[in-house]
Design a binder for these strands. Structure first.
Lengths: 228, 228
DNA sequence: ACTTTGCGAGAGCACTGCTCTCTGTTGCTA
DNA sequence: TAGCAACAGAGAGCAGTGCTCTCGCAAAGT
């Protein structure tokens, strides 16, 4: 049972986040202004602090929401694939990552761009949501039941141990070599999307969807997935 | 011939940039404050505008300097390799990219992180400096004189044409397929470094140098270079 | 009916980028 | 050498920011 006051509070809170997201896309993360949000709500600037204790806290909330919106989008795209078509699942993940990023560039910058200076997201509130997409890739690799091969380069014993140690907290039973393939695939995907969004490709590539598809196929082969 | 006044001006300008770089590393790009720089110089806030017309202009100057410092570092590392050891040259590039980024995280964020909101670097002043490292990779691929192979996935005709079109402005005579390999290698490298610096790997990898070496070897194979 | 709690208003502090005007100095030139 | 123009810094001021404080009102709980 919620009291009218609680509902009103929630309503205002939702409005704040809605306006904040909107501000984020028009002004960028540094342009996020509590005062501007208050103004838009018809509130005096100090009243906003009844809802959000600080600008940093608002950023954390936006990061959580964005990670979840991102995770929802990519998971939904991947779920539409047949489970045994591993190459297609990888392609669906890659394409939907880019699609979400292009549709929400400010949010992408918030998640994978430079950290907002002076602010550090509390890990306990963001790592879970932030792991959803990487975990999706690792889940895919787990389903592939891949074995380390000759093509996997050697790694130091310390790195091998480290990747062994995180094994229990990951889906399936990923050998360190396979986990490393997944890390590279995810990193490459982030790099491709970030370089596109942040404008580093402007003088070379403009055919972004085609370029991404091409590179996703390369990465699929690197992962060890059949093209399907 | 320079007058004392010109020399004094240049001196102050250098001080401004020095303090700005220092402020960048302690406060981050959004913490860059013209007033703080003026304060540190013992100047009143308005006097700084005799040297730097705006905060955006200061950012552009910092970006140019950073790109060049980055390019210097990577080029120097690559130049220390024997020209015919292509695998080593790639490894040297990758390692020195990471080394520079770890040593100058704020500058890395400025170059490859989210663009500072409201500000857009004038391309005519940054693209040349920003292309130095990518060009180094492409020069390496040109030296390798690689041919497209079965392993290169197909690409759309439009993308192929686009990569053909930039060919003359690049070193050697890179076929679109080889250029695409280079773009992926550079993107992956940026992704790996950014994810490390921006803290996305914290719960998985801490053995960063070993991890990078491992992935550089993978990428070297993908590029088609002998391990050397 | 009384008290606690929550919410908004308003003033205020310290900070930012940036503009304007005024003053003293420097350096070139007639 | 005298005079003028360019320049450098000072200081005030505007509009904006995050955030804190106090005050009063109204709703909710007892």
């Amino acid at each position: 049972m919620t009291t009218p006051r609680q509902r009103a509070h929630q309503q205002t809170m939702d409005d704040i986040l809605r306006i904040a997201h909107q501000q984020l896309s028009t002004e960028g993360s540094a342009g996020l202004s509590l005062r501007a949000i208050a103004r838009e709500l018809g509130l005096v600037s100090s009243a906003i602090y009844r809802y959000v204790p600080s600008r940093d806290e608002l950023l954390t909330l936006l990061i959580e929401e964005s990670y979840n919106s991102f995770g929802d989008a990519v998971e939904a795209a991947e779920a539409r694939c047949r489970r045994d078509e591993l190459g297609r699942r990888w392609q669906a993940i890659g394409r939907s990552v880019r699609r979400w990023a292009v549709a929400n560039p400010a949010e992408w910058a918030l998640l994978y761009g430079s950290p907002v200076p002076g602010y550090h997201a509390p890990p306990e509130r963001t790592t879970a949501a932030g792991s959803r997409v990487p975990l999706l890739i690792l889940g895919l690799l787990a389903d592939a039941e891949l074995e380390p091969s000759q093509d996997d380069p050697p790694m130091t014993a310390a790195l091998h141990r480290e990747l062994e140690r995180v094994r229990p907290s990951l889906p399936g039973e990923l050998p360190p070599e396979i986990l490393a393939r997944g890390l590279l695939a995810f990193s490459s995907l982030c790099g491709l999307v970030s370089l596109e969004l942040f404008g580093q490709f402007t003088n070379t590539v403009t055919q972004f969807p085609a370029h991404l598809d091409h590179q996703l196929t390369r990465l699929g082969a690197l992962l060890g997935l059949d093209p399907a």
